[in-house]
Amino acid sequence: MKKRSTLAYPCVVWILIFILVPMFLIAYYAFTNEGSFTFENISSAVQNEIYQKVLLRSVVIAFEATVICLLLGYPIAYMLSNMKKSTASLLYVLFIVPMWMNFLLRTYAWQVILGSNGILNTIFEAIGIGAQDMLYTEGAVLLGTVYNFLPFMILPIYTVLIKLDKSHVEAARDLGANGFMTFFKVTLPLSMPGVISGITMVFIPAITTFAISRLLGGGKFMLFGELIENQFLSARDWSTGSALSFILLILVLISMAIMRHIDKDTSEDEKGGGKLW
């Protein structure tokens, strides 16, 4: 027992330096003005129409990206889980490999692909569709977000699906359910923990990202993360920056609480479902 707690020290220190101290600093700057306690920073940030607009845009893009990731990711995970083990592991690795490369580089690559004289447009012109305006559009931002976060949707769902007790599916088929019904009545509900976890792992980074919108949106679709960065760098206004970070933090906590709640409900209902962890 004693030894274990000693080994935990680096972890405690890590949490202290990299999580608690920064959090404290954010809270400090968010709630003080020249040393005295105030709600002014938060309330003026909440009431600012520009910030509301940017926040709404971030939420909408993150939501759209999550829905698309789910619609793409679930079928992929489902197919993977039904494949021969060796093929599945190979494909699984193929999904992971791009994640070994830095995410900024991957996003830069999309600039080359989508640019007006880029690879895609060269192909479009060759087959007679004509050049399209793709880079620096909202669609490009959405594409970049989906591309970068899709693996985070696939992996938890896949993990749950391969652990799923196949006898449930067999029982459903024996009792006369067709494939369609089996999927919606048995497999899908049992895989909910993976889905919930995937949604959380996509939605939260998507709402806080700013590099993707900068690289693929050409600075025209400012997201909340960019707004925060701006406060610290060009505006030199740490109080507003911290207040905005704090608001984002609260939003993330709320969405995590909601996910957790749903997760708890489903796992209590569905005994025997695949557990993620």
């Binding site: 640019g115 007006s116 004289n117 949106g217 025209k220």
Partner: peptide, 20 residues
Amino acid sequence: APLVHAYLGDSIKESMINGE
């Protein structure tokens, strides 16, 4: 703003060289 293709940093150079 509606006329602007993008607001960029250093990558303006590359975009102009590529004829964008």
